[in-house]
Design a protein around this nucleic acid. Sequence first.
RNA 1: GGCGUUAUGGUGUAACUGGUUAACACGUCGCCCUCUCAAGGCGAAGAGUCCGGGUUCGAGCCCCGGUAACGCUACCA
Length: 520
Amino acid sequence: MSLDLSSTSNDFTGKATAPVRARIAPSPTGDPHVGTAYIGLLNYVFAQQRGGAFVLRIEDTDRTRFVSTSEQMIFDSLRWVGLQWNEGPDVGGPYGPYRQSERTEIYREYCQILLDNGSAYRAFETAEELDAERKAQMAAKQAPKYAGPSRNYTPEQAAEALAAGKPYTIRLKVPDGDKGPGIASTTFTDELRGEITFDHNNVDDQVLLKSDGFPTYHLANVVDDHLMRITDVIRAEEWISSTPKHVLLYRAFGWELPRFWHMPLLRNIDKSKISKRKNPVSLIYYRQAGFLPQAMLNFLGLMGGGMAQPTEQEIVSQGLDTKLADLFSLADMFERFDFKRISLGGPVFDLVKLKWLNGEYLRRLSADELFAALRTTVLSDDYLRSIVPLVQTRMETLGQFGDLTGFFFADDVMPPMDVFLPKKRTLEETMEFAVNMLAALEACDWTVEAMDAALRGLLEAAGWSVKEAFMLLRAVLTGRTASPPLLESLEVFGKARSIDRLRRFIEAQKKIAALAGRNK
RNA sequence: GGCGUUAUGGUGUAACUGGUUAACACGUCGCCCUCUCAAGGCGAAGAGUCCGGGUUCGAGCCCCGGUAACGCUACCA
């Protein structure tokens, strides 16, 4: 792949006049995340409002977390909520490839520039050495920070280590924090917060190129954003702390900075960053559980504000229904969403309001449309067809189909204690096992074989019988002691919803236990 | 621990460049409708704007100092 390196410093005509280009850059490490949809929506709206382009880039540089089925799920889920990208791996575009694993040559070449101009250096410390150093620093109550000898190697020393074939990473050489104004700190502008400054003493020498030859997020992201002419980086707040590293990189390359917009982080009910431990975060889940994409989109649009509410005057003078202020479409967002109005407190992703919204949209459907929606989701031919073989030998009349398969169509089942609690187990033991089961299944491929292996491994380690373990899981999934084959049912019901059901069971039991504790 | 960000009812948001009893939606509760449950209609409770100072005739909005929550602190993104 050939690069025109000569044009890198002044081909960027300036952000004031450059056409707006925004992007979403998910990593294919698992199920598509609501946070990705949220940031994606914001980028999409931003670009659309300014007549710009919206780019989808796949950041698959972490080979250890890579999940092969993830990328397609991301495409499908993002399209499902209604996002459309102008450029991306699946639709092409003038600045491709849009998959970072296909751009490794590019990163290596740009890394060489950094090496040549002294902005980066080769670091020969092993992962074990770094680990030990970090632990020592933590034990000594110091901020863990890279301080390996490689940073100060003479050219001869570096050449020697290189010649000896020692594996290395390439690190960013952050200017020394004590060397006076101008290089002691980095200041950048966050479009929503104003200027933010980081002292270089608090900015670590970030690894740019890993020893496996793949770039880290920081390098790949900056190089790609520049090469893809991204003008506005709209991303989650968690990236604020690493923005100085990115700014340093832009400067080292002599590139113009994009604008940075850091969006508030979606939160669990307890205000922590939204996570699958405490909330369904997979878009697959919401689709399978029967949320409408326009409701999801509307709900995400509500997070963090941005949509101007009608003023009291408008409500009175135009006789507006105030409830309608919360209901809006993508087109409405293009028209009225104002990025400067975004409120910076992390919004709680509240399922209750999402459900209300979804209900509003459901009620606005005609009976035919509702029927059609049902037939493409919870009552689709595919779904029904996959359920049928599980109950064929168990039916005497077709009318019994509903009795045998009800749990497949229920939003929630909650087994009473006499159903889920094994006779020889205490409640504590049982709940501990359930928690372990949840973890095992979360980490498991969703096939009968994989689940069987995971479950059997778990129950052996815990000293549970196959019968006890499967009966507990059956109770949680179906609410009963008799059911179609368990693992096959799990497979058909889907990972996202099965996991959610298990999680809800555990949460509910915790609440009950807490309540009982309080009444004692 | 260090650094950074944020802070309005239980939740999401309003409140023009400081100006009367802090508004809307969700949720909760009550009433009406009704064979039930929803939906729908009507109504109520719920914050004095994280805390403490300051400026001002007047502060949720400005200033100073705290506190708390969250994020980052990886050869993950």
